[in-house]
Design a protein around this nucleic acid. Structure first.
Lengths: 222, 222, 222, 222
DNA sequence: TTTTAAGCGAGACGGTACGTCGTGTCTTCAT
DNA sequence: ATGAAGACACGACGTACCGTCTCGCTTAAAA
């Protein structure tokens, strides 16, 4: 693939240099062949490094892979913060879907897959990405709530699962395609609910069995 | 665990017998040590089988693992179908969460993780489990829609992602815990939305900024 | 050095073929670079073999090395058995010294050195070489004794140490050189002792078979 | 075993102090686990030293090991020098056998084994031990010769090989056990020879000091 | 007495070997 | 014919040393 990058000197090289070389090599392998190809052996050879060194810095090839991924990934996009939650969420989520739809999709899927049997990888992913990401989203939702756009008693973490989690679902268990307008649907559903809007005609439903409960769940509370 | 099941005879054994022996051995390893331990080598040893045979029947250890999993798993629960969608969904989803919370959780996580780099496993999972499951859920939602409990223009597949997908999210990226009441929140959110009921039509709601209603509606329930 | 001997087929090869290939490769490395170069890694690459296979057949690189050595070495020379012990021993021992003086010397030294920290090697050496060799020598001495050429109460095993062991000593702790006439001295010393023969009374020995030659070998020379 | 001897200071320490610490650590490892465990790494760790330093002072772990061995070993025993060669040699050789039979035996064997592939070790052994030892023995034999107890034309170096070398043989190629009475047999054999003393000429020896005992020890037995 | 530099400690890095495990392929044998 | 038994090549893992090199710092020797 790339040059074997033969290192003449046998002595010590500054740690930083080696680290970046390792991350570069790992990223290259990761992006071109997937995480299964990211082995210490492979990274060592393509990066002109010693396997021993990799073992010293990363507990697991997976951990190296995540770090390489983030070293190359763009920083976390900050949430847009207009007064319109729906638009903001849709924008943000669409960007996410686009990301997963592109070449990064399989990579992320692979990483998450590997994380299921590699605690080090899972921890790194959580620390570098998913936790901050979640926090960002929750903060945005909290802002929306403070603006009166989200009900007070809603567990915001759950909302995140229903937006981003839904996208991950389509990524990881691809029975349904990941399409750009998925974001729109997700946001709309979770904001306004999928139960029909009553309007004036809401009365119509009165008397229907079964619907009663549902309707009550929504309106009948008083 | 169990005996190595020594098979003295070297000649041919009936195919069916071999298959069930393989599935039993695989299930045992899978449930006790996770999918990473389900290798042809291991299954062959603990099942008293020949590795060659396993290669012939399953393309991948992962494929064998899924099949073993389903050979032992309970059949798909049918959806309850009272007239109350919310209750039905909550019931069903709670059962799912309970499943994932129990000992099966890690197993499923492992399988899904492995599926990301094992197309055979992914296909088997989709065919045996996720597709039928999705269809079941969509059918239930469709029934609800036909009863007028779900808005016409809602993409039902998306709703599935927002319910089950959200649970998978918590399973696979465990930044937040999988708790039993998650199901309730998920269903409520997606049915009624998290935005406060407001606007002109909210006249019903006493002119309160909508949060009131929502809050009331919610707390009034218990 | 030699051809990498690329093996196209991945499947099984007859065991015998592999064994001989391994032994050949090991012998080559052993004779050209000494036992320290005989590692599984090295033998595997130069022989076009898999390291795993070598592990299966030999417990230790050293064990492989001994076996390779004997696979290439000439069979044990049988003892000459004329009626003259001194001549016979000298002949035999001289051959041994010549062997150790030649290119085989360092190899044997290396093997014996390695045997000190490799029980498998030591066992193989003992079984294949040193024990039979000792037995051969002891048998020859026993024959001599039965001919009346060796005193009845002599521990023959000790004599072997004083002949062959002395040579090993010069090989392994080379403070003094291994020269061809060492053999002669060794035999003479141990047969007749280094204490001075009484002088004129030497005539007494005339008439004794076998000893005559020996005595002459020493005193008759001047 | 002992404490890791934590050295807080990072700066320079007097050379002598470092050397003795290294030797002590090396000796400890050598005596408890054999020479294979004496690696720079190991000695550095257990001695609280830096590997770099060890590299500067000793070319090879083996060289360090020998030096550590001698730093701890008792000084060379001087030869007893009564007028009785046989007794003197037997005494001295018995002490040697006892040494090799005890805990030191395996250590010496290991050192000699390692010496076969470590010239630095071999040189150190020769210089510190084997050469002086040989010289001592040869000097003792020379004294005996000047007393007329050893024949004039005997190569004394060869005798040493037949005495000490024989013991080394049993140590390094342990097909026969190293027993205390080995020393006696060795000395007797080499002094008087193993060929039967026969005939009337045996009377000649009467009156000779020392030899008488030996001869009697032998013939008187039956 | 002050300065200087010798040399140790800490530790990183490339490299070689070990022993183990799993895979995919192949062959031979028994039923 | 097909399953079993099992051998082989291959690739990866994790560990252990080695030899080399770069720092930072202390202290012993030089000024």
């Amino acid at each position: 693939m790339t040059d074997p990058a033969p290192r003449p000197g046998r002595g010590r090289r500054p740690a930083a240099e080696v680290r970046t070389a390792a991350l570069a090599a790992a990223a290259e392998v990761l992006l071109s062949e997937g995480i299964r190809a990211v082995t210490f052996e492979r990274v060592a050879t393509t990066g002109g490094l010693s396997r021993t060194t990799l073992h010293k810095w990363w507990p697991t090839p997976g951990a190296l892979a995540v770090e390489a991924y983030f070293a190359r990934a763009e920083p976390l996009l900050d949430f847009p913060d207009t007064a319109d939650v729906e638009a903001d969420l849709t924008t943000q989520l669409t960007a996410f879907v686009v990301l997963l739809t592109g070449p990064t999709g399989p990579v992320v899927a692979g990483l998450l897959g590997a994380a299921q049997s590699d605690p080090a990888l899972a921890a790194a992913w959580s620390e570098h990405y998913s936790r901050p990401r979640r926090d960002l989203a929750v903060r945005a939702l909290r802002r929306a709530r403070s603006r009166g756009q989200v009900a007070e008693d809603v567990d915001l973490a759950v909302v995140v699962d229903q937006l981003w989690g839904a996208c991950y679902h389509r990524l990881l268990i691809p029975d349904e395609p990941l399409t750009p307008d998925l974001a729109r649907h997700l946001v709309r559903n979770v904001l306004h609910g999928i139960a029909p809007r009553s309007g004036p005609g809401a009365g119509v439903r009165d008397g229907l069995t079964g619907l009663v409960t549902a309707a009550r769940g929504r309106f009948g509370r008083r």
